[in-house]
Amino acid sequence: MEANNEKYVRLSHMLKEWTKEDVVVAFSGGADSALLLRAACDAALENGTDVYAVTVMTKLHPGSDLDTARRVAREMGALHRVLEIDELDEAGIKENPVDRCYRCKKSIFRKIRALAETLNVRCVLEGTNEDDLHEYRPGLKALKELRILSPLAQCHITKQEVRELARRRGVSVAERPASPCLATRLPYGTHITCDKLQMIERGEAYIREMGFYNVRLRLHGDIARIEVDAEALDGLFRRREELTEQLKELGFTYITIDLEGFRSGSMDIKIS
């Protein structure tokens, strides 16, 4: 706990320096960017400056993410802005290339950087954490190229520490499950369509409504591969008839449960 405090103190010192001017925080509404936004708003309050929370509305993220981001930005007193982006066309990722994350991040953060310029803001922050640096994240290259700052990673704050620090500072989404873009549910080289993304979004929403926390519905052609936390597998299997019926109504053909359970980045195994 003491180490967490030291890291947060370092984060606060960095943000007090950067918020001597207005700043932009790329804000998804998840725990990482929410902790960063909380710290930035606290620092800006002392400096008498503004924090703009910029949320990107895309086809690759559930629509509910925007509602959450609006609420949390309001709770923290940030000035909220929304950018609508069609990254399937604009970033050239319809065929889900291996460097999809790089192309997408480059396209999105160029627009965030352009918005920042219209607001006369030089400093753009985002919520990559320490753990992200040790996974297959080609989008990190785009952040470096565009000079986007990642304060949580710079302070070596891990995902677990993000949640602990967010809880202690009253961040309402401290326990919110990670919600990476829906394209991560499809194998690389798969043609991405809005219909597929909507099916996946609805399927995952249903499984969460059943009471499961970490949920991924990976789509391999006609086969839906469901990941939940390993300790929840028995519970999911006991409800397999209900689950299968509902997912088939959504358009899925074959329904499977991954016996390894939930693991972030399972589509990256052969390339990471």
Rank of each mutant, 00 (worst) to 15 (best):
K141S: 07
A174Q: 08
A230G: 04
L152T: 00
R225T: 04
F252H: 10
C123W: 13
F262A: 09
Y136F: 15
L243C: 13
N96D: 11
R70I: 15
I207R: 00
V72Q: 02
E231L: 13
V56L: 11
E21V: 11
A166V: 06
E175Q: 13
L152V: 06
A40F: 05
K106G: 01
M57V: 11
V54W: 04
K248W: 05
C181R: 00
D22C: 10
E2G: 04
E130K: 13
T55H: 10
Y206H: 07
Y188P: 02
A166D: 03
R137I: 10
R185N: 08
A3E: 13
N4I: 14
G127W: 03
L182A: 01
L66P: 01
L217Y: 05
M199S: 04
I255A: 08
Y254V: 12
S107L: 12
R147M: 08
S28N: 09
K196N: 13
D99W: 07
A3V: 14
V72A: 03
P97R: 06
A26L: 10
V215Q: 00
K196W: 06
V51P: 02
I192V: 15
R169V: 10
V24K: 00
A73F: 08
E135G: 03
E204H: 10
G265A: 11
D86H: 06
S272F: 14
V215A: 00
I255S: 05
A44R: 01
D268S: 14
G221P: 04
I226D: 00
